[in-house]
């Protein structure tokens, strides 16, 4: 087989690829590098003392601005590693609320939580030196997760609807735009007026409103949820809690 290769090798005949001077070319290249790195500085970066310049969009560990967060748990839903969890916290300014807690040991820094966050409370941070002595240290509770926000840390993936492309538009929508927002649709026949969706909505976009009908048994007016699409952040929490699964998401396409 080795003989076969010898016969097949075509480089011997190509004059341009014939080594001219054994290893002299390599010696020259390395010597040039030696001179350059001795006169100027080498290409390396002395890591603990100097660090790479990171762009603002750098995806280190996730960070949070507690004041902006509305506890919609969209980040919990999107996280591919299921490392985010909503935990109850108590603080002087916020009172008793739920905020996300991130298990950074499991986080794969995909940045989805910041991308879907409707209020840009979840951000990507340039913090990447996360080594710790124990796993519990890597459990970032909401207070530990806080990070000072900068516009560049907020992630937004603008998109356009397929129907708009067909219509010839090129303007893209940022997140939260009405045009691309998925809305909640109600199957009124199934609804039992339990008002759980109203209680669970983080932004108060669901209001139980009277439909005009009256319950014949109790003689009280029947209430059904009404959705305020301006306020809605499409978090799907109401869809999840609905006991009769009469809510569904209507995708804007």
């Amino acid at each position: 087989m080795a003989e076969d290769a010898k016969n097949k090798s075509t480089y011997q005949s190509r004059s341009e690829l014939k080594p001219r001077a054994w290893i002299a070319d390599g010696l020259r290249v390395t010597f040039k590098t030696l001179v350059r790195t001795t006169v100027h500085r080498p290409n390396t970066i002395q890591y603990p003392f100097e660090k790479l310049v990171k762009p603002d969009c750098y995806r280190g560990r996730p960070g949070i601005v507690l004041e902006k967060c509305i506890a919609c748990s969209k980040c919990v839903r999107i996280c591919p590693n299921r490392c985010i969890e909503m935990v109850p916290i108590e603080s002087a300014t916020l009172g008793k609320v739920k905020r996300p807690q991130v298990n950074v040991a499991r986080c794969m820094m995909c940045g989805y939580c910041a991308e879907v966050c409707p209020t840009n409370a979840m951000i990507v941070t340039p913090e990447f030196e996360l080594a710790a002595y124990s796993r519990s240290e890597l459990m970032f509770d909401p207070f530990k997760l806080q990070f000072e926000s900068k516009p560049g840390y907020e992630v937004c993936s603008p998109m356009i609807l397929p129907s708009e492309i067909k219509a010839g538009k090129t303007e893209m929508h940022n997140k939260g735009d009405m045009a691309i927002k998925d809305t909640v649709a109600l199957d009124a026949k199934k609804c039992i007026s339990c008002s759980r969706c109203e209680k669970t909505c983080p932004v108060g976009a669901v209001k139980m409103t009277e439909t005009g009908e009256i319950n014949p048994k109790t003689n009280k007016p029947i209430k059904k949820p009404a959705f305020d699409n301006e306020k809605c952040v499409s978090c799907e929490q109401c869809v999840d809690v609905c006991p009769k699964s009469c809510l569904s998401m209507k995708e804007a396409m």
């Binding site: 590098t33 790195t37 080498p42 290409n43 390396t44």
Partner: peptide
């Protein structure tokens, strides 16, 4: 040290 400079790095420091 020399090998480091030949390879465009610092070598030990």
């Amino acid at each position: 040290k020399f090998l480091g400079r030949f390879m465009d790095r610092r070598g030990t420091s």
